[in-house]
């Protein structure tokens, strides 16, 4: 009987992802090249922001993926807790550093964008602050995985941390919104992006977002494969000790 859970078998997962990976990776490369070239050279400059608006093609997709990576980790953690598929736990582990890097890209591009527009590299705007907190959650999650020797124990503990962390990340998001409104009247520094983006910018942006999604999928597949192989190597070594 064919079921989705078949792919939770490590062997089957590696075989399938081996076939899928070149396509996903290739598509990611193509859409990133097309999207970025289109965005950088073939769109007009913004009336108010000039050329600096073009960093949007890196900033928005990476910010989206920073959040989506955490959501993917949350889902994978839930699958591990409920169905105990090892691949799921390892996929969550594999996604964490990718998500963390996406968060850093979003923060850095945000700072570079903010400098000419807001006149400062960093403001404690709710959105920026939330991303910084998200980055801290990624760090804690990665550190906990690294600190525990037993793989199953690590998978269990990090899943619980991911669940609890998600609730607190959401709480922090609202807390930060409340806090900043309390500090500064009106969010004069935050940009409402929907208002700014017209179709000319919108389509290359979509291509870039697709590129980032595909890049994320490819990286996570690749890293999950690596994790599975590392895990198997540890199991083989343990088996050797058993004699």
């Amino acid at each position: 009987m064919a079921s989705l859970w078949e792919y939770a078998n490590p062997k089957k997962f590696i075989a399938t992802s081996d076939k899928v990976l070149p396509w996903v990776g290739g598509l990611a490369l193509v859409s990133l090249i097309v999207g970025l070239i289109w965005g950088f050279w073939f769109t007009p400059e913004d009336a108010r922001q000039g050329a600096s608006v073009k960093i949007i093609y890196l900033h928005v997709p990476s910010a989206l993926m920073a959040i989506n990576a955490w959501i993917m980790m949350l889902i994978a953690s839930l699958i591990w807790i409920v169905r105990r598929h090892h691949v799921s736990a390892l996929a969550a582990r594999a996604a964490a550093p990718v998500g963390a890097v996406m968060t850093v890209i979003a923060l850095i591009t945000g700072a570079i964008w903010g400098q000419p527009i807001w006149g400062t590299w960093w403001v404690w705007d709710p959105r920026l602050t939330s991303f910084l907190i998200l980055f801290l959650f990624y760090l804690g999650y990665i550190a906990l995985w690294a600190a525990i020797e037993n793989d199953d124990t690590a998978a269990d503990l990090t899943s619980v941390l991911c669940l609890v962390g998600s609730v607190f990340a959401l709480l922090s998001r609202y807390a930060v919104l409340f806090w900043n409104q309390g500090l500064h009247q009106g969010a004069s520094l935050s940009l409402d992006k929907k208002e700014n983006v017209s179709n000319v910018f919108y389509f290359p942006l979509l291509v870039c977002i697709a590129g980032f999604v595909l890049l994320f999928v490819a990286l996570v597949l690749l890293r999950t494969q690596t994790e599975i192989r590392a895990r198997r190597m540890r199991a083989l070594l343990a088996r050797e000790r058993m004699g």
Partner: peptide
């Protein structure tokens, strides 16, 4: 509880707990 079995888990404990403290600290 998360770090109880980890040797020298003190620093890790801070790294895990401080982000969770954010909402409480803010309010």
């Amino acid at each position: 509880a998360l770090t109880v079995g980890i040797k020298r888990g003190g620093l890790l404990l801070s790294l895990l707990v401080l982000p969770l403290y954010v909402p409480v600290l803010i309010f």
